[in-house]
Amino acid sequence: MSTVQVEVQGLSKNFFDQSRGEVHAVQQVDFECRRGEILGLLGANGAGKTTTLRMISTVLQPTSGTARVLGHDVASEPVEVRRNLGFYSASTALYPRLTARETLTLFARVNKYPAERTKSRVEEMIERFGLSEYAGVRIEKLSSGMKQKVSIARTVVHDPPVLIFDEPTVGLDVLNALDLQQAIQELREDGKAILFSTHIMSEAERLCDRIAIIDKGRIRACDDLEGLRAATSQHYLEDIFVHYVTANADS
């Protein structure tokens, strides 16, 4: 059985905006993400990271190209794709009037997790993310760090093989960001295929097994850190990123 969990080929997305006209947000993007791997999408704001990940999560429809999650096509089998996916971003909020336990139960059920195992799975998540003390407290009363933990637990409660983290540390303080990174690393160790988008170099360097540098909607390079260093003769990821982005600007 192939370990490729996410397969993206020639994915493109055009938007239309009244002020800017036609915008080619993503152009001919190709990459794969394997089991137990964190693939980083590294790019500046507006580079096309979120649009790419939203197409993979079926929220947006590709203008052209395909994306498959565990062999399920995002265009023709969106529900199957989402069943195998956990999506976390700064814009995916939680219901403020639910408790942490109710939130996890809701998302397990909505994601069609087997009914007979839902309760034990929810308790397992509460235990794993250290939510026991606050499991009965409404989300609106939790601190931002606790909310973030509930959010991650919500993302993985149905045990999806593929996880998408879209700029997850935006707006978090250093300690919460480190906690989140720790949680993501643990999920990789569980064998999840993880797509992780960020514009923070240190985060990508620390977490990602491979890094795809995305600029103006195109993937400029995709390799592990050593490969990128060898290809650019640069040591620091920041320099490598600048190398590809300026090379593109020059061309």
Binding site: R82, L85, T92, V110, N111
Partner: peptide, 12 residues
């Protein structure tokens, strides 16, 4: 509230 995107990325 920002919960719609959360909902739309579920298997519902």
């Amino acid at each position: 509230r920002g919960t719609l995107e959360t909902l739309l990325t579920t298997a519902a």
